[in-house]
Amino acid sequence: MYQKQIEQLVILQQIDGEMISLTAEVENAPKEIASLEKKCRDVEAQRDQVREKLGYLTDQLSRLETDIEDDHVRMKKSKSKMMMVGNSKEYNAMVREMDSLEKLNRSRDEEKVAFAEEVERQTTADRELSEQTEALRADLETAQAGLKTRLDAAGKRIAELSEQRTHACGVIPKPILSRYEFIRSRLANPVIVSVTNGVCSGCNISIPPQAFIELQKGQQILSCPNCQRLIYWDQHIMSQEKAEEAQEA
């Protein structure tokens, strides 16, 4: 009788453990979708910022190229005029103007190089973020497509386990079941654990020698004095398994 009760409690715990995992999956699956959606939005926002910056840089680069081209035209005209200058005063004035234009153009050329380099960097960033977005969108579509299937399968399995749990609870004496449920409400799984070589596998602490002796007798279900979980001597279950194997053989 004792061993049968232990076996049923272990079965009940296995059922509860699977139900806990499935319930967590049902709760977390929509959260996973929400997390992927947020990642998509975040990456898309980054990409939009990059594209906005890229648009500004492209406009500035175009403006610089236009200004540089206009200055080249002005310099050509100034050089042509220098050939027609009638006195040194006008000549010197035109030389100064051309020097100013050349300095301005050198500065603009340097600025153009800097803008072109930044455009290249932002173009690379845009491409990488676009690839990330596509990958995340594909993951999201796959997750969304499989969500209903996952939830349906989990719900079906939970229903099956609920029936198995009802059956298991029906064959366990109410006082023992009440102790199991009481401990389960206060401690995380596992609720019932084996004792091997006098050590509780739930808290990994040795139980008192007298308690271990009582446990080995297999007359009543005991609790670990340290973690309060239900305990059983592992040899009892092993002996039962060997007996069942012998009967099957």
Rank of each mutant, 00 (worst) to 15 (best):
N92A: 12
N87T: 11
A116K: 06
K103S: 08
S201M: 05
S206W: 02
K148Y: 12
E52R: 12
A143Y: 02
A24C: 09
G17L: 07
A116G: 06
Y180Q: 02
L129Q: 05
P190F: 00
Q3E: 11
E7V: 02
P30S: 11
M94G: 08
E214M: 12
M84F: 06
V119W: 02
Q235I: 05
A145G: 04
G198L: 03
H72P: 02
I205E: 07
R157W: 02
P225G: 04
G17Y: 01
L230A: 02
G198I: 01
L187A: 13
E245V: 04
S223W: 01
K103G: 03
E44R: 06
E248L: 10
G155E: 09
R157G: 02
A125P: 03
N226E: 13
C40Q: 11
P175W: 12
I20E: 15
E111H: 04
R51E: 13
S78P: 05
A29G: 07
A211G: 03
I158Q: 01
E32H: 10
S162E: 08
N105I: 15
K39E: 10
I158R: 00
C169N: 09
D234C: 04
D42G: 07
K89A: 12
D126R: 07
K4R: 14
E65K: 11
Q14P: 03
T123Q: 09
E111C: 05
M94T: 04
S78V: 09
S35P: 07
D67G: 06
D71K: 10
A188L: 08
S107N: 12
S239K: 06
E90F: 08
L147I: 06
A24F: 08
M1S: 08
D71H: 11
A145C: 08
R108S: 06
L177W: 04
L151G: 01
A168T: 01
D109G: 08
E131P: 03
K148G: 09
L136T: 04
R229F: 03
L36R: 03
K53G: 13
E248M: 09
A93W: 12
I15R: 01
V73W: 14
K76I: 12
L61S: 06
I237E: 00
T133F: 05
E27I: 08
Q219K: 15
T133R: 12
S62A: 15
A188H: 09
I6E: 00
